[in-house]
């Protein structure tokens, strides 16, 4: 990725962040002359966590998706299609509603454990060098199972309001999160991204095949373990605070690799930037679409991501046939 492209992405991220803080602007503009303190509080305590969470969660999904795609050598792998996000949501829901621990740290631990469980199950079912079909079928089964168990856990929960939270957990929500909650997602997520970025070289070498990567001095087993644990940590921490959001982790790395001449490892940083941009854009769409009510953000990412996924599958099928 050239410096000009990196600067362009940084500029776009800054603009998206400002847009996220200020959209819609009219209520804040109206409030500032009357009660500047309240207007400021609105910005800092409501808009800022939402904007920051969208950036951090999107970046985590983008970087994790790029790492998982590089690890499985498969452009159709992503945290949601491998069941990582669904597993994390299940872990958080079980922790909160069945075990009764609602502190953010407990939710995060539950979600990380759920994500790790889902990824471990995927590796056991599909193997580390999974064919596309095996990977997708295993991921689909794990996602469906985790989704069903999440709904079941919410339906059986002692709290009468639990079931109404199903939307938030299954389709994600960035609304009304506090600064503290945002920090609980952001700290592990940013650590995850930083650590993943140290693995760009080994992940690029892995594109040459496991044997060659080993001959070049990379410990492939350790690399695999690091990626599984890191993506579970980052995605788990974000899901614990904002629920499961799909398709960003699939789409962002595919765009990112167009900026890195197809290198899967080097795509991690642009994938994080593009993931952050996409989720912020989806959140802006949720806020500005005049439907009279707030859409779950996962609906927007799925509405945009699913057709892209279908196009990708059709494209791959066409390439295989030709």
């Amino acid at each position: 990725m050239s410096r000009a492209l990196a600067a362009g992405l940084a500029l776009l991220l800054s603009l998206a962040f400002i847009a996220s803080l200020t959209t819609p602007w009219s209520p804040i503009a109206a409030l500032f002359p009357q009660d500047p303190e309240l207007a400021w509080a609105l910005l800092v305590e409501l808009r800022l966590p939402r904007a920051a969470l969208a950036l951090v969660y999107g970046a985590t999904l983008g970087a994790s998706g790029a790492a998982i795609q590089a690890l499985f050598a498969n452009p159709l792998a992503s945290p949601d299609l491998t069941g990582t996000t669904s597993g994390a949501a299940l872990g958080a829901v079980v922790t909160a509603y069945l075990l009764g621990f609602t502190a953010p740290i407990a939710l995060s631990l539950g979600a990380v454990a759920g994500a790790l469980g889902a990824l471990a199950l995927l590796l056991a079912l599909a193997g580390p060098r999974a064919e596309t079909a095996t990977l997708l079928l295993s991921g689909l089964a794990i996602s469906a199972l985790a989704g069903a168990l999440t709904t079941l856990a919410l339906a059986l929960a002692p709290s009468p309001f639990a079931f109404y939270d199903a939307y938030d957990w299954l389709m994600g929500s960035l609304v009304d999160r506090s600064l503290a909650q945002t920090a609980f997602a952001a700290v592990p997520a940013l650590l995850t991204i930083a650590w993943l970025l140290r693995l760009t070289g080994p992940l690029d070498s892995l594109a040459l095949g496991e044997e060659v990567a080993q001959s070049l001095g990379h410990d492939v087993l350790r690399l695999r373990l690091q990626i599984v644990c890191l993506t579970a940590l980052g995605v788990g921490a974000c899901v614990a605070i904002a629920g499961a959001i799909g398709f960003i982790g699939l789409v962002a790395p595919i765009f990112a690799r167009r900026l890195t001449r197809g290198h899967p490892g080097r795509a991690l940083l642009p994938a994080a930037a593009i993931g952050a941009l996409l989720l912020t854009a989806a959140d802006l769409a949720v806020r500005t679409v005049p439907l009279g009510r707030t859409l779950p953000i996962g609906v927007v990412t799925a509405l945009l991501g699913a057709p892209f996924f279908l196009w990708l599958v059709a494209h791959m099928r066409f390439r295989l046939r030709s």
Binding site: A73, D204, A207, L208, G209, V212, R261, G262, H263, P264
Partner: peptide
């Protein structure tokens, strides 16, 4: 290695560079 199968569709020059 004996295999000529490749995990990832890199450009030829980039593949040589990764060595």
């Amino acid at each position: 290695p004996a295999t000529r199968e490749l995990r990832w569709p890199l450009l030829a020059r980039d593949l040589v560079r990764l060595g």
